[in-house]
């Protein structure tokens, strides 16, 4: 929608500049006035891990050096997923001013939101590093597969934000639905519990394979924990990415021109 200057030589890099700067800037503004600054992003999870982590490890009879890393990676990964999903439904209504001024395209608005979620997430990676250092866990090159999982998560964040952004702009109910689902999804995903040796035990039993968050988390977490990834997880993650992207593309092709009317 940038119908203004130099449309013909609107370099990709210029757009990147816009995305990165605006998302980083919004982040900086938010924490500038606080004393701890972005360190606040770590306070909540640290408390949670220190208290709930040790408690649950004792209750469940799981060694801390297994449960605490499991919990930490789970929480940090969940923060990314939750950021993408929860913010997606309001992405366009929050950017109403930018949309109505005609400066930023809907793609720009989506990318800025996705990037700011990634910025928040990037800060929390420190927690994983700290836990690995504290428990002196060894990491093999296999752990790098986790980055592939992360890439999948981000790709899904993009289509999700487009898809639910459009849906949420039209039907405000979607925000409520998503909130209700995410609360249950947190408990249904093995973050504060361990599914057991078989991979589908634990509280949720066989239903676990139907939880998409579980498969995404597995691909990010298993490599770091030195565990194998089930073929099913790859299949689910890749299918969701492909099908979701297709859906989002169709959806935006069909509806993006009416979004400015809905916000």
């Amino acid at each position: 929608m940038s119908v203004n200057l130099k449309e013909t030589n609107f370099f990709a890099s210029k757009r990147m500049q816009m995305w990165i700067f605006i998302s980083w800037f919004n982040f900086a503004i938010r924490y500038r006035k606080t004393i701890l600054g972005p360190a606040w992003l770590l306070v909540g999870p640290i408390l949670f891990i220190a208290i709930i982590g040790r408690l649950f490890a004792q209750v469940g009879g799981i060694p801390e050096e297994i449960f605490i890393p499991h919990l930490t990676i789970g929480l940090v990964g969940w923060a990314l997923a939750e950021g993408f999903v929860m913010k997606s439904t309001t992405v366009f209504s929050r950017a109403k001013a930018q949309i109505l001024q005609g400066g930023m395209s809907l793609t720009d608005i989506v990318m800025v939101d996705v990037l700011s979620t990634i910025i928040y997430f990037a800060h929390q990676i420190v927690l994983i590093l700290a836990v690995f250092l504290i428990f002196r866990l060894s990491v093999t090159p296999y752990a790098l597969v986790s980055l592939v999982g992360l890439a999948f998560a981000v790709a899904n964040g993009i289509w999700l934000t487009i898809f639910f952004g459009i849906l949420g702009a039209r039907y405000r109910d979607i925000t409520e639905v998503i909130q209700a689902i995410m609360r249950i999804a947190f408990l249904a995903t093995p973050i504060i519990w361990i599914p057991g040796d078989t991979g589908h035990g634990g509280l949720m039993g066989v239903f676990l394979v139907f939880n998409p968050f579980y498969h995404f988390l597995e691909i990010i977490r298993a490599p770091l924990m030195g565990e194998p990834i089930a073929l099913l997880s790859w299949v689910v993650v890749i299918s969701i990415t492909v099908i979701g992207s297709l859906f989002a593309a169709l959806f935006s092709h069909r509806f993006s021109k009416v979004v400015p009317l809905w916000v």
């Binding site: 940038s2 203004n4 200057l5 449309e7 816009m18 700067f21 800037f25 400066g103």
Partner: peptide, 8 residues
């Protein structure tokens, strides 16, 4: 800067 970037 923000507005400038938004204007492309």
């Amino acid at each position: 800067y923000m507005r400038g970037l938004q204007m492309g």
